[in-house]
Design a protein around this nucleic acid. Structure first.
Length: 647
RNA sequence: GCCGACAUAGCUCAGCGGUAGAGCAACUGAUUCGUAAUCAGUAGGUCCCCGGUUCAAAUCCGGGUGUCGGCACCA
């Protein structure tokens, strides 16, 4: 006699086991029509499942966010059926719902192309129109394997073989087509609706392992209605406009070319942006008691052997040798990181516990031979500059240093326009240095520090550095891709390997703990994200060209020059537009160039010694006497850390 | 690195076996203009590289390089 408690608190009692469909019908025809699935004691299930004992029940309708995942998952099944109908011999593998949509991985000798999409989508619509019910079939491992074996579905057979013993094996049937699936699903293919679209084809390794076969993946997006779909597609277009590679070109910030794959050519405006951020970072680090250093680019392999990098990362290091006969045995490597260098500085002389925590910072240029497929604009490059620092400290100082670091990072991110970010905690990887006891201590210390700092993190198992666990501070780019920017890594291994030590209070020699940390991560990556975050329309203090002084007539040129000089003297980045063009044209050009402030000078202004200020791309304008304009803009253009606090 | 697509003027792109095109930018001249594109003219290209097919290749084929979308990688 199951008693079903509904979200409004009402209870319905049934004589025996009852399906969600029946319960919905007993409540009313409207709900019976709208219910797509149900949540039984918090667990999402098919509507057709029987409820045998007392339970809390909630129906999922199209209005629920949860419907999205069901629609996407169902859509993946329909895609697979459509593909197998159109391309016989194609094997199915897996097809989950993901953020914004779904994908399905197929094995087929011929890859799919986007030209196949119209036919596949048409077939999908056909299947959806047929509205076959999703039928859940509980089966045995043996039967399931026999079924897929017979169909020639090698990948499914492998999946079933690897399912944990004792797990219920279920199939879902939609008409004639059947897939191995845990469910749940909606009532039938008709519940999917028509708000879906196939987006792209891609290669993907079977089970995400590069040693396995390359499968052919089809990505799709699916929504609850056309309006949502259109909004999503529109949002994608908007995101493309923010792409740092596009904006970088449009604003003339940087370029990349074949002769220096993975290295950035910074143009004057891009470099100014870089320097603004670098200058800001330098001040923040000085203020936070870091000591800046500069260390060599090229170092003998001996150092990398001692640090352990030679053994683990040699294939991703750039190696340099010279022709000179007497030097022929010397192998140098471009530094892929700064840590061993910083230990060399730490190791000069004898350190005392009184010097700890010692925070050593460097804007360190590093080179890594990244896999060609990993390169991405200026976000993933082979030559980059880290805002690196190493904190040499005692074990008991880890927590306090972590708290300090998180506060510094949060404040800097906020100043740069990032109010939120995600934190991942990555623990010991399979390929690692150091014994388990050391790892236990390192992970424990970092976890405890997170608690003290009040950091909410997501566990990222097995993703730590080879020498220690790490926190990753993740920012999202315009296209929705996540990038690790900031990081904090606890390291007990490198000080040991490179023999760093200090004299403790009791006179004994001890190993310091090393905290590797970066806030921006690399300037290249961070600037890429910064460009996308602001869509190239930077706040005044970051803008590479802050003010353009534009003339209306040639007679205004002398005063325009004078005004530009005055603004420049006040520390602003100014450019003069004396071109023989109409003011309308100049306005358009500087909006395109994403200049934040346009100062227009005509005959009137030249006489009155004033500027007409206009915030681009806005339309409002204001006439301001030159001296006042200079003072006002200079104040506004001050970096956040240099601003005079006003009540 | 793997799967797929793409590579033509500074930029955005058209041309897809028969002597290389457009718009914008650039340059020259005219115009001196009051806030979202003034007019006219000029110049600009080993059609990514190497090889092949062909009477003829930007175009077709093979190899390379780079870029893009994913996957894998990310000390």
């Amino acid at each position: 006699m199951p008693a079903i408690t509904l979200p409004d608190g009402s209870v319905r009692v049934f004589d025996g086991p009852v399906t969600g469909t029946t319960v919905a019908a007993s409540i009313g025809p409207g709900l019976a029509k709208a219910a797509l699935a149900m949540e039984v004691d918090g667990q999402l299930q098919d509507l057709s499942r029987e409820i045998e004992s007392d339970a809390r029940l909630r129906f999922v309708t199209r209005k629920d966010e949860q419907a999205l995942e069901l629609i996407r998952h169902d859509c993946a099944h329909v895609l697979a059926e459509a593909v197998q109908a159109l391309f016989p011999g194609t094997q199915v593998t897996i097809g989950p719902a993901i953020e914004n949509g779904f994908y399905y991985d197929f094995h087929r000798n011929e890859p799919f192309t986007p030209e196949d999409f119209p036919a596949i989508e048409a077939k999908m619509r056909e299947i959806i129109a047929r509205n076959a019910g999703f039928e859940r079939v509980v089966t045995t491992r043996h039967e399931a394997m026999a079924l897929f074996e017979e169909k020639g579905e090698k990948y499914k057979v492998e999946l079933i073989r690897d399912l944990p013993r004792g797990e219920t094996i279920t199939l879902y049937r939609q008409g004639e087509w059947v897939d191995l699936c845990r469910g749940p699903h909606m009532r039938g293919t008709g519940d999917i609706g028509d708000a879906f679209k196939l987006m792209k084809v891609a290669g993907a390794y079977w089970r995400g392992d590069h040693r396995n076969a390359m499968l052919s993946r089809i990505y799709g997006t699916a929504w609850r209605d056309r309006k949502e779909l259109d909004a999503y597609l529109h949002q994608l277009e908007e995101a493309e406009r923010r792409d740092h590679r596009k904006i970088g070109k449009e604003m003339g910030l940087f370029h990349l070319q074949e002769e220096a794959v993975g290295s950035v050519f910074w143009h004057p405006k891009g470099w100014r942006l870089y320097r603004t951020v670098e200058g800001y970072m330098r001040r923040r680090l000085d203020e936070a008691d870091y000591q800046e250093v500069k260390t060599p680019q090229l170092l003998d392999r001996r150092l990398w052997e001692a640090s352990g990098h030679w053994e683990k990362f040699r294939e991703s290091m750039f190696i340099a040798t010279v022709e000179d006969e007497s030097e022929k045995d010397r192998v140098l490597a471009l530094k892929p990181m700064n840590c061993p260098c910083h230990v060399q500085i730490f190791n000069q002389g004898i350190r005392s516990y009184r010097e700890l925590p010692l925070r050593m910072a460097e804007f360190g240029a590093c080179h890594r031979y990244e896999p060609s497929g990993a390169l991405h604009g200026i976000m993933r490059v082979r030559a980059f500059t880290q805002d690196d620092a190493h904190i040499f400290c005692e074990e008991h100082q880890i927590a306090a240093e972590t708290v300090r670091f998180v506060e510094l990072l949060s404040s800097i991110y906020r100043d740069l326009g990032f109010d939120s970010f995600r934190v991942k905690f990555s623990d010991r990887p399979a390929k690692r240095a150091g014994d388990d006891a050391t790892w236990d201590r390192a992970e424990g210390a970092l976890k405890q520090a997170c608690e003290t700092a009040g950091v909410d993190y997501v566990l990222n198992p097995g993703e730590g550095a080879f020498y220690g666990p790490k926190l990753e501070f993740v920012l999202r780019d315009a296209i929705g891709r996540d990038w690790q920017c900031g990081t904090l890594q606890v390291d007990f291994v490198l000080p040991e390997r490179l023999d760093a030590e200090y004299v403790a209070e009791d006179g004994s020699r001890k190993r310091p703990v090393m905290l590797h940390r970066a806030i921006l991560g690399s300037f290249e990556r961070f600037l890429g994200i910064l460009i996308e975050q602001h869509a190239g329309r930077f706040p005044l203090w970051l803008a590479p060209v802050q003010v353009v002084v534009a003339t209306i007539v040639d007679d205004a040129a002398p005063f325009a020059r004078e005004a530009a000089a005055a603004l420049q003297k006040a520390g602003l980045s100014v450019s003069l537009d004396l071109r023989n063009e109409k003011i309308n044209r100049k306005v358009v050009d500087h909006i395109d160039q994403r200049v934040p402030v346009l100062a227009v000078v005509g005959r009137r202004e030249a006489e009155e010694r004033s500027l007409v200020l206009r915030r681009l791309p806005g339309r409002e304008q204001e006439t301001v006497p030159l001296a006042q304009a200079v003072a006002r803009l200079a104040e506004e253009a001050a970096a956040p850390d240099l601003r005079v606090a006003t009540a």
